[in-house]
Simulated scan of single mutants.
Amino acid sequence: MLDTDVAVAAEAATDACLHVHADHPPGIQLAPNCLSIAPGLRSLSRDPLIEIWSLPGTGRAARAGTVYLLEHEDALFAAWHRPDDALEANTRDAYRDLFLAIQARGFTYPIRIWNYFSRIHAEECGLERYQSFCIGRARALEELGVAEDRMPAATAIGTGAPGLFVYLIAAREPGAAVENPRQVSAYHYPEQYSPESPAFARATRIETADGPQLLLSGTASITGHESRHAGDCPAQAREILANLDALHAAAGADIPPPAWLRVYLRRPEDRPDVASVLAEHYPRLPPLQWVQGDVCRRELLVEIEGVYARTP
């Protein structure tokens, strides 16, 4: 059973867990039963929430070269952190190292991946750095023989802290990729966005002992393959919620409502407007984690990810 939550403070790890912190010095810490990651995010809340993924029982902590691992019989948490210059080459290394490490332990299927790096819109070798990231990821997947349409839900966000962080949750069985009928699949984007298309599913459905869960990719104000409502953050938030509703419907009627959501804002001052949009949309507002982050396209001001799961 994979449990997920956001909380104000994390208790001592009695179960195998992955903790993701905002407002901590960037880095990775590996303890006997916990993999703790601070990927350079800046919290926009007075009491920053910690993202917690847990599995009942004991995990086995290990290092495999550049990869930090916490292995449980049901799932594997894995993380990689190095400088983000040069981004293309380091992204290629990150994906190669992570995928080889999880495959060596029998966890062939990543079900959720996160990517964070600095200066997402700066130039590197004549390309925007987000494009360099996409190229590095695509090159690694090609070397590993992983088709783009086999990738799980993912997030790629620009941070204010240097370094490339890539971390994931892997399983022995694949999740079910879910695509959004309102959007072109990211791996089919036209070349105008990047010489290599992004490689991720819009969401991943997994089955747990507590029922199905839907792991949402970072979702922005895009329909088809085009950005919508440039410069209008509340309108972008409404478009995102329409995309999330479409994903929820596509994933199946048995999927619960959101257990928690993370909201990335390019401009912290947009938080009140986005909060109003979310409160209007959800009869029962889920826990929200607010962080500052740069979305992959300059005109996009907000992105939302999260988990739909049964809550106590």
Rank of each mutant, 00 (worst) to 15 (best):
D3N: 10
D5A: 09
E11W: 00
E11L: 02
A13E: 05
A16M: 04
H24T: 08
A31S: 03
L35G: 01
P39W: 09
P39H: 10
L41T: 05
R42G: 08
S45C: 06
P48V: 01
R60C: 07
A61L: 15
V67D: 00
Y68H: 14
L69I: 10
A75Y: 05
F77Q: 01
A78F: 05
W80G: 04
W80Q: 14
P83L: 04
L87A: 05
L87W: 02
E88R: 15
E88S: 06
R96W: 01
R96N: 09
L100N: 10
A101C: 10
A104M: 07
W114M: 06
N115F: 04
S118K: 12
S118N: 05
E123A: 08
E124N: 10
G126T: 06
E128I: 08
Y130M: 15
G136I: 04
G136S: 11
R137A: 05
G145Y: 14
E148I: 06
A153L: 02
A154R: 13
G158L: 13
A161K: 13
P162N: 00
L164R: 04
A171H: 14
G175L: 09
S185L: 14
E191T: 05
S197E: 07
A199T: 10
A199I: 12
F200V: 11
A201L: 07
A201D: 02
A203G: 12
A203S: 08
D210T: 15
G211M: 12
S217H: 11
A220F: 12
G224V: 03
H229Q: 03
G231P: 12
C233H: 02
P234D: 04
Q236W: 00
A237C: 13
L241M: 15
N243D: 03
L244C: 06
A253L: 12
A253S: 15
D254F: 04
I255S: 03
P258V: 11
R262M: 15
V263G: 04
E269T: 10
D270Q: 03
V274L: 11
V277K: 13
R284L: 11
Q289M: 13
Q289E: 01
Q289C: 14
D294L: 11
V295N: 14
R297Y: 09
R298A: 09
E299S: 09
L300K: 09
L301Y: 00
V302K: 06
I304D: 02
E305T: 12
Y308W: 14
P312D: 04
